[in-house]
Amino acid sequence: MAILITPTTKIIVQGITGDFGGRHAKLSLDYGTQVAAGVTPGKGGQFFEHAGHKVPIFNSVADAAKATGATVSVIFVPPPFAGDAILECVDAGLDLAVAITEGIPVRDMVRVKRAMQGSKTRLLGPNCPGVVTPGTGKDSHGGCRIGIAPGYIHKKGHVGVVSRSGTLTYEAVFQLTSKNIGQTTCVGIGGDPVNGTSHLDVIKLFNADPETHGIIMIGEIGGNAEVEAARWIRANCTKPVAGFIAGATAPAGRRMGHAGAIVGGAEDTAAAKIAVFKECGIEVAITPSDMADALLRAAKAKGVTLS
């Protein structure tokens, strides 16, 4: 079992008729992902066609879910409408909403997150690369690719990856695959200050997943999500964990691309987070080139086989 999604998961693409959503819907179809429906208000009844696939488009998420049995939606709609798009997934009772959109106002996300309390829907993102459960085919074809990650760099296997950053996730996955170490699921939780699923939420899922033998956790300066996850790992997780924190050289008070990557106080610097990682038994990757090797060191120390 992977976490969150499997190769049979049926997905909805909100914003499938836009450039960005359409391009990535095609790449997911090429990867073998079950893209069951698209949603664009006003275009219900039309079809999204690509390489022999004919994906029906609906006016609402509820209609799409009811007609196709899809349980997960990926959101590519522009920032002013993205909060509403997330709430539509909640209203339709989906299991998972994955918000790729970058630039959603914080106030919108504060309201959305409050409105999601007590609902069954989990949110990944926003401002995230999405989530991939690799398949067994060539270049991991046949897996479930939700979002914008390059599918081909993955390989089915036993390592879980969780990260706030897109390209840094690809870097870690690429290192693993190059060393012939596969992944169960790779999860991007997004670079915004208010997001749905946290590092800790994903770590708990990986810990409970028997197929996952080791975990790479990638974080950034700002906030205390990585610290919270690290403390839980020390108390509860027996699997080998490697960690990396980006932003050691970032000056305080400056936003480093991601809205959430900003040093506010002494507790959310890279140095402070790395110190907590070490204290909690997490093997720290010294440079971003060292992420897969760090996990190999952690696995060796615990006598765990990753491949």
Partner: peptide
């Protein structure tokens, strides 16, 4: 990418 950009600064240092 923001995360990769930050860590590129870090690795230079």
């Amino acid at each position: 990418g923001a995360g990769l950009a930050m860590s590129t600064m870090d690795i230079i240092q």
